[in-house]
């Protein structure tokens, strides 16, 4: 799972609608991938992502220190860094914890498990 996907997922336990995004990544293992650089891809993708959550998550994982707000102009260096963050960081295991209700979503074999138990639906 890439951070792009982490940036789209939110807690969906019934009744949990406060602090349900972003989910906190814990005890994760990261595999570094190598992907082809494509500036247009990064720019298009950024339009769809929540920058704040991305900055917060990459900071807490110690991957990058992004500015708090998305810069208006993205220079080459920044694009390269974002390329790495978005496409080359693969989370293979660990868990995502909801900061609102503490629900734990495990990640195994690179796949987040968003299934709920019956009482949470």
């Amino acid at each position: 799972m890439r951070l792009i996907t982490h940036n789209m997922l939110q807690c969906h336990v019934k009744g949990c609608n406060k602090d349900n995004f972003p989910l906190k990544l814990e005890e994760i293992e990261i595999e570094e991938l190598e992907a082809e650089f494509n500036a247009d891809f990064i720019k298009s993708m950024l339009n769809r992502l929540d920058w704040k959550a991305l900055a917060q998550t990459t900071f807490s994982l110690g991957i990058a220190q992004l500015p708090e707000e998305m810069p208006e102009e993205l220079n080459d260096e920044m694009l390269q860094q974002l390329h790495h963050i978005l496409l080359e960081v693969d989370i293979t295991s660990g868990r995502m914890v909801c900061q609102g209700c503490n629900h734990v979503y495990p990640i195994r074999d690179g796949i987040p498990n968003m299934l709920l138990t019956e009482s949470e639906v």
Binding site: M1, T5, L9, G110, I111, P112, N113, M114, L116
Partner: peptide
């Protein structure tokens, strides 16, 4: 990316 989920609650 792949995500394991019940579409009903997604």
């Amino acid at each position: 990316d792949l995500i394991k989920v019940d579409v009903e609650t997604l």
